[in-house]
Nucleic acid binder design. Sequence first.
DNA 1: CGCATTTGACCTGCGC
DNA 2: GCGCAGGTCAAATGCG
Length: 325
Amino acid sequence: MDTSSTSAAMDYSYSLVDTSLDLNINPRRSNDVAPVRERLGLSKEVQSNFMELGRKVSVKQENGALVEELNRVSAENKKLTEMLNVLCENYNVLRSQLMDYMSKNPDKELSPSRKRKSESSNNNINDNTVAMNRNSESSSTDEESCKKPKEEVIKSKVSKVYVRTQASDASLVVKDGYQWRKYGQKVTRDNPSPRAYFKCSFAPTCPVKKKVQRSIEDQSVLVATYEGEHNHPHPSQMEATSAATRSLNLGSVPCSASLGSSGPTVTLDLTKSKTNNNDARISNSRMESSSDVRQLLVEQMASSLTKDPNFTAALAAAISGRMLQ
DNA sequence: CGCATTTGACCTGCGC
DNA sequence: GCGCAGGTCAAATGCG
């Protein structure tokens, strides 16, 4: 029984991603979905009776219209997925070209400013793979490793995230779901905006640090530099483990921008649901037998996603970060 | 009162 | 060795 619920959860996560992308690019959908749901009586309490009502002829007629709508949404999703794939392919091509260039010109620095070795190596390329390669190269000889005892393993995991905020917002806060404690702030030479230093305070032993500074080119963009890897699960995932044993929770889906070993990613928090457990029970027991209901629930989740400012901010951060890289 | 933030002092690495 | 700049520490301060 665990396997079925797990596969169902994974299936929903995939649907979530596709639909959320669709709704972000086509915001009109949030306006379309809500009336349709109201027409079908898909409020949280009425939704529990949806399957019984679905057997009635009048509802079937509206279901037909809804199926057409969902088909159109699915087509849009497919199109957007293809666009995303093309974007990722282009990104990979550019990255491979950059890697080739760096391997052919190891002496040339992309950043002309003189800084510490670790700092300059981190700033050259906003790519974890290159940063790790550079560290492996520097540690290839014992002589260099002796010269730089402070070169911690933490430095091997460095990535940047660009977050667009309001220019009037002076706070250097990047909401990524983790708990951070600010331990310092400095005004650097190359950027008049102060740089804030954060440590992960969720776990006392977590070595992850974060630097946040406004972009010198665009004051409305916050540049968050993450160093190290969390040695604890994401705070939302810790709740997810307990929630997953109960059932699937659908509805409002908070999310956060988080960083893995391969760069910025969007972590969808499926655990914090504003809907009651009836929705979850419905989705759990009926979704295998009704693809229409699944589509409806996906739309409901997507609608909730687009209403969540945390999700939109985190998604914008992840996308902008990837594009700017 | 406890916790998080602020901020000046201090530490460390690098270039000259 | 000295100065500079980034990074960190810790006492002071603010806030709920």
